[in-house]
Amino acid sequence: MQEEIKALIQNRTWDLVPRPPTANIVGSKWVFKTKMKEDGTIDRYKARLVAQGFSQIPSLDFGEIFNPVIKHIMIKLILSLAVALGWTMRQLDVKNAFLHGFLKEEVFMEQPPGFINEDLPNHVCKLNCSLYGLKQAPRAWFDRLS
């Protein structure tokens, strides 16, 4: 959790602001996962802060949403071409990918459980960047990647 919070802070994912009286405030929660090595032993424990996007209100918290999808036939085609033409294949993994997408809308989120600012306990997070769980997170990441 400390590592995840550190990445969020370094990325300036949010600013703490006074709670707006008429804004919808999205909740947040921690999701935990155990990452395994190929031999089945534990590699590390992963914690991810996730926005509770199910509570977002259309046209208030988000407008356009987008989820890039690739068909399996396209993956097979590209792999077949790579083999036939002798191409080198590489994989790209972007750590905390969705955190790199910028939000166009104003989205407010409760402070992360366990990491509430003691000096500003009633403030909320005004999100600058997308978070996992937000309805517009895939679109924001795709816009940034493009």
Rank of each mutant, 00 (worst) to 15 (best):
E64F: 13
P138Y: 09
K71W: 01
K126F: 00
R19H: 07
S55N: 08
Q91K: 03
L60S: 13
C125A: 10
L16Y: 03
D93T: 09
L81D: 02
M1R: 10
A140S: 13
W141H: 04
W141L: 05
F54V: 03
V17M: 09
L127H: 04
Q91S: 07
M89L: 15
F32E: 12
I70Q: 11
N24G: 12
A137C: 07
G86M: 03
F66A: 04
H100S: 06
K104N: 14
F142G: 03
M36D: 00
H100N: 14
T13W: 09
P18E: 07
D119E: 15
W141D: 01
V83H: 09
F54P: 04
S146W: 02
G27D: 08
N128T: 04
M109E: 02
W30I: 06
I42W: 00
M74F: 10
E64W: 11
E3M: 10
I42G: 08
L60D: 06
P21K: 12
I25A: 14
Q2V: 02
A84S: 13
N122F: 08
R139V: 02
A23M: 06
M74I: 00
S130R: 06
L85T: 13
P20T: 06
V107F: 02
K33A: 09
Y132N: 09
Q2N: 11
L85F: 12
F98W: 10
K35R: 14
F66I: 03
V107M: 07
K35T: 03
D61N: 12
E38T: 14
V50R: 08
T88L: 06
I65L: 08
N122G: 05
K95Q: 08
A7R: 03
Q56E: 09
F108L: 03
T34E: 14
R144E: 04
W87R: 11
I57N: 15
A137S: 14
L60G: 03
T88W: 02
K33D: 00
Q2A: 06
I25R: 14
G133N: 08
I9V: 12
K135H: 06
V94G: 03
P18S: 08
E118T: 15
K71P: 01
H123P: 02
Q91N: 08
R44A: 01
N24P: 00
I25Y: 04
I9G: 04
Y132W: 07
Q56L: 09
F108C: 03
S28R: 09
L92H: 07
N128D: 01
K135G: 06
K71I: 00
R48V: 00
L131Q: 05
N117H: 10
L99E: 04
I57E: 14
A51C: 10
R19D: 00
L131E: 03
Q91R: 05
D143Q: 14
K126T: 00
W30S: 07
N11M: 06
A7Y: 01
E105K: 13
V31S: 11
A23I: 01
S59L: 04
I116K: 14
W141V: 02
L134H: 08
C129V: 00
K46G: 10
G101V: 00
